[in-house]
């Protein structure tokens, strides 16, 4: 129990520190990498809650795919750090107001008063061979089938929309048609001529 608490506070501290660094670090690449660290640490916290499927899916989807593309884009952007710093000071008051409001709200509502052990009993720890992937699958594909399918369709629509928005046909671009390339006949390309040897 003690070890578990030490681990929890360690990872929670790293999570909060890296989340703070996302906002405060000067370099956008550093900010992105701290965001990766923050996501990774929250995945570890989920793992400690015995939600191993969600934890691994978080790492797989966000760390492994989304943040890679994010990093890709941030690296390609030409960001002027000096103007960013100037804006940081300018927007600091607004940021502080939002920050303080959110903190007060969270302290008021997400506390032991509403979510303490009196309101919600401590869940029983499951045994090691308990598979929450199976549980999730059972629920997702039976009870919550329609919401799940609708979410999938919405995502599909979003993908199609994003692709159509960015799809630009440039008239001057030349494309190669691979099937055309494969079906090339040597006879069309090379003409073998037979000539009698000439004597000098």
């Amino acid at each position: 129990m003690l070890l578990e608490q030490i681990l929890f506070y360690f990872f929670a501290t790293v999570l909060i520190l890296s989340a703070t660094m996302v906002v405060t670090s000067k370099n956008p690449i550093h900010a992105t990498l701290f965001l990766v660290l923050a996501i990774f640490n929250s995945a570890i916290l989920w793992l400690m809650l015995e939600a191993e499927f969600l934890a691994i899916a978080l790492v797989l989807v966000y760390v492994g795919a989304v943040m890679v593309l994010f990093l890709f884009v941030v690296m390609m952007l030409d960001i002027d750090i000096a103007t960013m710093r100037a804006h940081f000071i300018r927007y600091l008051p607004i940021g502080l107001v939002v920050f303080i409001t959110m903190m007060v709200e969270m302290i008021l509502f997400v506390g032991t008063r509403y979510f303490g052990l009196e309101q919600f009993a401590k869940p029983v720890a499951k045994s090691a061979d308990y598979s929450n992937i199976e549980e999730l699958g059972q629920v997702l594909y039976t009870v919550h089938l329609y919401p799940f399918e609708i979410a999938a369709v919405i995502l599909l629509v979003a993908i199609i929309a994003a692709i159509t928005l960015t799809l630009r046909h440039k008239p001057n671009t030349r494309y190669q048609d691979p099937s055309h390339q494969i079906h090339v006949d040597p006879k069309d390309r090379v003409e073998l001529l037979k000539m009698p040897a000439e004597k000098l």
Binding site: V36, E52, F53, V59, V68, S131, I133
Partner: peptide, 20 residues
């Protein structure tokens, strides 16, 4: 572990960070 396959997939996807 039960989620072995998922774990391997997640870890191999992290490897790209070293290169980037």
């Amino acid at each position: 572990i039960n989620a072995g396959l998922l774990y391997v997939l997640a870890l191999t996807s992290i490897g790209v960070y070293g290169v980037i």
